[in-house]
């Protein structure tokens, strides 16, 4: 892993702890979208911290993953604004199309589906985040198209 890059990040903060979050994002990118224990240990070593301190941060934030994720990450906002315009139905449509429950990864390892809290796109609810890009607004009938598009792209 790119320890020098982490060391460089650390110099931008007054305290080493502050560099944990950006360092973890970098580590997650390099480890295929999630943080295995080795990745946490590497970040801890690079920042001269205990691995537990790094894991505490990694387990706190929703966008850092401590278990393997699929090639594609589909996240449906189910917070208030999205819920009012049918987020539950959108989520259900994805469940049917992908054959997984929220929080799970498909058996072929291609898709992970998650229900998330507010993604900050309330004006154009329902917000669906696909591989870190927003699709908005999404209606249940748009879901087959999105899934088809992702499968075609592979």
């Amino acid at each position: 892993m790119n320890l020098d890059a982490i060391a460089a990040i650390a110099t931008e903060y007054p305290e080493r702890q502050s560099a944990i979050l950006p360092a973890l994002r970098l580590a997650q990118e390099e480890h295929g979208g999630w943080l295995p224990p080795e990745a946490i240990r590497e970040v801890a070593d690079a920042l001269d911290l205990a691995p537990a301190q790094v894991e505490a941060v990694a387990s706190f934030y929703d966008m850092l993953h401590l278990a393997p994720v699929g090639k594609h990450m589909v996240e449906v906002c189910t917070n208030l604004s999205c819920a009012l315009v049918g987020a539950q139905q959108v989520l259900q449509a994805f469940e049917e199309q992908l054959g997984v429950a929220p929080g799970e990864t498909s058996e072929d390892g291609r898709f992970t589906l998650r229900a998330i809290e507010c993604a900050g796109g309330c004006g154009r609810a329902v917000v669906v985040v696909v591989d870190e890009r927003y699709r908005e607004p999404v209606r249940p009938e748009d879901v087959p198209g999105i899934v088809e598009e992702l499968k075609r792209g592979d």
């Binding site: 224990p37 537990a52 301190q53 894991e55 387990s59 706190f60």
Partner: peptide, 25 residues
């Protein structure tokens, strides 16, 4: 662990109602 012994080994994992006290792995 964090601010007296400064070993950083005992931490709270997760968030909110899911929080638990733990060591790394």
């Amino acid at each position: 662990s964090e601010s007296v012994a400064e070993d950083g080994q005992l931490v709270a994992l997760n968030r909110g109602a899911e929080s638990v006290i733990a060591t790394f792995e």
